[in-house]
């Protein structure tokens, strides 16, 4: 009975040529253009058009204006005078209309295919979803390549941001030669840390979550000597925070890397000159060995 006519009138929303953003109202569009594109970089003044901004720069600040801000590449020029929807080049307008109509068309097609109307048209897949899907896929592939491994895929366990291509990501508990330095020394070998993708649910509660107890062992000469590069584990971003490790700073982790580590001179010889000699002797020996 009450089936709606599907041939709805296609309405083109006001849009900004500079950044291709759509607006509900022409007034809002004008406000947007003033504040985003036609704002003077040197004083708080906002102008109505690109030409106005150019004249303002030349007369008030006595300098050539900077390219327009916040625009798409190639649309930061002063040659086109645009005020709201007026002045947009006709070919660009036609192109935009065709694009919007195509989008509306495909949306309508998709709606008929599903048998129901859709409410939103997303032309870009959200990044968070993409990243989650990627993480899930990676975990799946890793599990397939190592059927014996115990760790199941963790869908969406890399919350936000791109997980760092850490070499330790692809390692599994069974292959780990020794516990990483971030573990207390008394830990039994069965208690290896979960794979880096895993996060305890508690820690996901955001910033206010209780921080895990510090397990960082302050560096002594003995501790630093046994480390190798790959033993230094850095956690992937969590809750969008790029350095979620509460136990050590990036500089500390970095200083543990083999290439940055400093071999302190043997006890008893605190003189820097001696340590210089020791270092040069060591290098010589290594060169002979090669």
């Amino acid at each position: 009975m009450g089936k709606k006519k599907r041939t709805q009138v296609f309405v083109l929303k006001p849009w900004c040529w500079y950044c291709e953003r759509e607006f509900e109202d022409e007034k809002v569009l004008l406000q947007h253009q003033k504040s985003k594109h036609f704002k003077c970089q040197m004083c708080p003044r906002k102008l109505n058009t690109a030409g106005g901004l150019m004249v303002h720069s030349q007369q008030v600040h006595k300098c050539e204006p900077e390219p327009l801000t916040n625009t798409l590449p190639g649309r930061d020029g002063y040659d086109i005078e645009i005020f709201g929807m007026e002045g947009i080049p006709t070919n660009a307008l036609a192109e935009w209309r065709a694009r919007k109509e195509a989008e509306a068309g495909t949306a309508a097609l998709a709606a008929t295919a599903n048998g129901k109307r859709i409410r939103h048209s997303y032309n870009v897949i959200p990044e968070a979803d993409l990243i989650a899907a990627l993480a899930q896929h990676k975990a799946l592939m890793a599990a397939r390549n190592n059927p014996g491994s115990v760790f199941p895929p963790f869908p969406g366990s890399f919350p936000i941001g791109i997980p760092p291509p850490n070499p330790t990501l692809n390692r599994f508990p069974g292959e780990m030669p020794m516990p990483p330095p971030t573990l207390p020394t008394g830990m039994p070998p069965s208690m290896y840390p979960p794979p880096p993708g895993f996060q305890p649910p508690m820690a996901q509660n955001g910033i206010s979550g209780v921080a895990p107890p510090p397990t960082f062992v302050p560096q002594s000469n003995e501790a630093t000597k046994v480390l190798t590069t790959s033993d230094v584990v850095v956690e992937p971003p969590k809750d969008g925070v790029m350095w979620p490790d509460v136990t050590a700073s990036p500089a500390e982790k970095r200083a543990q890397q083999a290439r940055y580590r400093y071999q302190s001179p043997p006890p008893g010889s605190a003189e820097s000159a001696e340590s210089f000699e020791a270092a040069s002797r060591k290098r010589k020996a290594a060169a002979d060995f090669l």
Binding site: P164, N166, L169, V233, P250, R254
Partner: peptide, 9 residues
Amino acid sequence: YDWAKGHGG
């Protein structure tokens, strides 16, 4: 680089 992504970054 400030080591925020560890060795891999």
